[in-house]
Amino acid sequence: MTSQGPILQISDVSLVFGGVRALSDVSFSVQPGELFSIIGPNGAGKTSMLNCVSGRYTPTSGTVSFKGQDVTGLKPNDRAELGIGRTFQNLALFGHMNVLDNIMVGRHHLLKNNVFNGPLYWFGGAQKEELEHRRFCEDVIDFLEISHIRKATAGTLSYGLRKRVELARAVALRPDLILLDEPMAGMNLEEKEDMARFIIDLNEEWGMTVVMIEHDMGVVMDISNRVMVLDFGRKIAEGLPDEVMANKHVKKAYLGEEDDDTDDDEQVA
């Protein structure tokens, strides 16, 4: 797999909002099959980085390549068709749709029925096609253990469940690269464990390359193949989880804020 070259290649990406430099010359690459984490303090530019990959933002300079193709100028929906899926930090479900329909939207680019034969339902083959894709969505629903809420209106669900439905929707797209923005934020320990298990399965069983932003260091160190650290829009470290943990800059910029002081001092000393 690795012989194909990186699935995602970020080269010198900068992103400027008015006076704010959200990203400064960030470069990194992700190999097919990797589980790659991005960490860093709040406001470091992690979400902005994902937005550059998914197409929400276009970098001020630099390029984004996916499977060897330059996608910097492509719109989000075109990137979805190429095989990039994502979830959002602040939930972004279709609130008035039920869970199943939310997930079926993930099949949009794979479905062929349209405004002409969709209305003819029974005659134009639309029903058959919808039911086939429904079957796939049910597999995703079973996998993420949300079958009990499949007919619930998405907007009425608890936070933890909504996060899970968002993941289901992104998985239904059958992306080769899935971007997860703080998939475990606001969850309790049990929910986090479930989510970590799902992410590992997606990576190992479903063969998806994962790029994940996460604050829970324990989870990040446990499940990531490689970790990149952003601080004030700059990449300050990248490597194996252990290497990154041991990095002085990282401790100072990021972990130092969260670990309690004595512990930190001992490690540095």
């Binding site: 929906n77 479900l93 329909d101 029925n113 969709g118």
Partner: peptide, 24 residues
Amino acid sequence: RTRDGRAFVAVRDHYLSAEIMGIN
């Protein structure tokens, strides 16, 4: 209840994530 109708509702409910899901 088919693809394009769902796309309409997706555009209404959350157009940014509709676009991320592949909807033009």
